[in-house]
Amino acid sequence: MLTYILKRAIFMVPMLLGITIISFLIIHLPPGEPGALGMEMNPKVTKEVRERVRALYDLDKPLHIQYYLWMKRFVKLDFGRSFSSDRRLVIDKITERLPITISLNLLALMFELVFGIPIGVYCARYKGSALDKGLTAFVFAGFAIPTFWLALLCMLLFGVYLDLLPITGLKSFNFSELTFFGKIADIARHLVLPVFISSIGGLAGMSRYMKSSLLEVLRQDYITTAYAKGLPEGMILRKHAVRNALLSVITLLGMAVPGLIGGSVIFETIFGIPGMGQLFYMSVMSRDFPVIMGILVIGAFLTLVGNLLADVALAVADPRIRLG
């Protein structure tokens, strides 16, 4: 087992290296340079200023040198400074946004699990019933509806017409003056819409996965055996069927790990939530190469780790993999 993990971990290094090269090339492909975008078409910016700024960012050097310089810093786990005019450390910019995105996505993931699995189980057990069809239609609708559109509709309904929920942000303007419970309620009120909207798509995936893999399991001989020896149905489902069916959910969870830090550009932008997705979007728009690279590398790393974790977790949960 340990050698397996070790082997996988070592293999991650060349993979990560390849990812950085490809990412670096791709983000330098489109026209436009950092800093220059703010200065484009500005009569006050002379040629000398332009050259000076380019030199400051090492943009006057050929691409492979730029990559080398970046790599030299990166091996020391230094992501460099942002190209945007605040010149802050990339790692600071990322760490101040990471907690927000992670906690939001964890909440959404929990929401998906808590509702997705029971829906899947129910739909598998009572396949073809009216409720199964209804639930299936509901989750598919949730999957198919464009998130941004649903988000705007919900904001219009709950925010503007009913005036029940705040529309954007995470905290009210007077947050610092609220009592402890007031603060919790304030954040909870702000979270209702974003968490609901961001999990509605995943809910469909989760419940469908659960349903199909449970159906698969329910067809197995040992389930028939369990029924035959007269076990109560609840016990069959809980002890024998669902446990086995959950294996596929573990794979799904492994794939969700990079999403936890990636955040969603769309709903973070719409809800005005200062998370990673927003940071990434703004960095791309302003060609802030160090920040883009930082986020891409961390994301790639977490994807690889997530896959590894999922495999390990599968091995732990499933003796066939562990022993075989």
Partner: peptide, 16 residues
């Protein structure tokens, strides 16, 4: 000065 990146949201927030 709040940051609301989406103009449609900004308008909703104004109406609200």
């Amino acid at each position: 000065a709040r940051v609301i990146p989406d103009p449609a949201t900004q308008f909703l927030e104004l109406k609200n």
